[in-house]
Amino acid sequence: MCACAWRLHVFTAALVLAAHLIKVLSCGEAGAGPRLTKRYVGLYTGPYFDPSAPNNITTQLGTHAYLPCKVRQLSNKSVSWIRRRDAHILTVDRFTFIADERFQAFLVEATDTWTLQVKYVQARDAGVYECQVGTEPKMSHFVQLNVVVPKIEIVGESELYVKAGTTVSLKCVITQALEEPAYIFWYHNDERVLNYDKSLVEIRMERVAPDTTVGNLIIYSPRREDSGNYSCSPSNLDSASVMLHVLSGEQPAAMQHGNGARGASPRRALLAAAALPALPALPALPALPALLPALPPAAPHVRPQLVLHRLLLLLALALLCPVLCHDEDDGK
């Protein structure tokens, strides 16, 4: 009986000691009261980065990027985001320390994630960003931001020549795009093209591949006034343009090529002729029947060169006349 009682006392003492140790680990030393700093038991006794958080983010030009930083057991420590290329502090907790309003940080409490948001990403935003926790020493987690720049072009030559009344189809192809554009706007000489009347103009957009979108502008029965610059402008991307020439009637062969020489139009020839200075009027010449050979009347089909030659001959004789008269007077 004594041995059993002794064992019972030892077991009871062990339970009391275990309870005391648990209290000390969770609340601090006995009699010291609860502490403000929370104690953690396990592998990490303070803040640590969740290793499952991604450290490589790829986004498309013009969209929004979200850089995550999962910090467990953060307690009352602060979290900062720093741009590595220039060591610029972007945010500290929810406060922003850069004039660029595209940067903002917010906390997703359900996942203990401090996320850096970059709105309307630009190509220069690519690089490494540091998530820093205000411990001693500092703790850092790095995230690489990659920016994909889609390629946009209008299929065909930069200048397009079509006959009036011939249907025109302009194709705007966007490749290397992670996201499909919300819209593709078409502009004619900086004025937006609207497809209210589908018998005149039709606009289409189609996702033909995981990274390719095609926008199509169809102009039915184009007229001369439909000539000009046409550009396609997808959402959050640059634009591409083409010059359309709508020709009426037959045109010189050189007009069929965008880079070829163009023949002078009749209107230009008339303007050039009008710009020439007028010739002064010649004084009346005395009759010289003895000096002038008999000239037949000009036929309707006489060439302009022959008329010019005759005028020059008359001018030469007019200049020669005073010389002959002077010689006659000297002989007398």
Results as ranks from 00 to 15, higher is better:
Cys2Leu: 15
His9Trp: 05
Thr12Ala: 15
Val16Phe: 03
Ala18Lys: 05
Pro34Glu: 12
Arg35Cys: 07
Leu36Gln: 14
Leu36Thr: 12
Lys38Asp: 07
Gly42His: 02
Leu43Asp: 08
Gly46Trp: 04
Tyr48Ser: 05
Pro54Trp: 00
Tyr66Ile: 03
Leu74Ser: 05
Asn76Asp: 10
Ser78Pro: 00
Ser78Glu: 12
Arg84Val: 15
Arg84Gln: 13
Thr91Asn: 14
Ile98Gln: 08
Ala99Glu: 14
Glu101Met: 10
Ala105Gln: 15
Leu107Val: 10
Val108Gly: 02
Trp114Asp: 02
Gln117Thr: 09
Asp125Ala: 10
Gly127Ser: 13
Glu130Gly: 03
Glu136Asn: 12
Asn146Tyr: 15
Val149His: 11
Ile152Asp: 13
Ile152Tyr: 14
Ile152Pro: 03
Ile154Gly: 02
Gly156Asn: 03
Gly156Cys: 02
Glu157Asn: 13
Glu157Ile: 00
Glu157Val: 06
Ser158Pro: 01
Leu160Gln: 06
Val162Ile: 01
Lys163Thr: 05
Thr167Gln: 10
Asn189Trp: 06
Asn195Cys: 11
Tyr196Glu: 09
Asp197Cys: 02
Glu202Ile: 01
Met205Cys: 08
Arg207Asp: 08
Arg207His: 12
Thr213Glu: 06
Leu217Phe: 09
Gly228Gln: 00
Tyr230Ser: 03
Ser231Asn: 08
Asp238Gln: 12
Ser239Arg: 13
Ser239Asp: 07
Val246Phe: 03
Val246Asn: 04
Val246Asp: 00
Glu250Gly: 02
Gln251Asn: 03
Gly258Ile: 02
Asn259Leu: 04
Gly260Val: 00
Ala261Ser: 14
Gly263Cys: 05
Arg268Trp: 08
Leu271His: 05
Ala272Pro: 00
Leu276Arg: 01
Ala278Thr: 07
Pro280Ala: 04
Ala290Tyr: 05
Ala290Pro: 01
Leu295Gln: 10
Pro296Val: 05
Pro297Met: 04
Ala298Ser: 08
Ala299Asp: 08
Leu306Trp: 10
Arg310Pro: 00
Cys321Gln: 11
Cys321Ala: 09
Pro322Gln: 01
Asp327Pro: 00
Asp327Gly: 01
Lys332Phe: 09
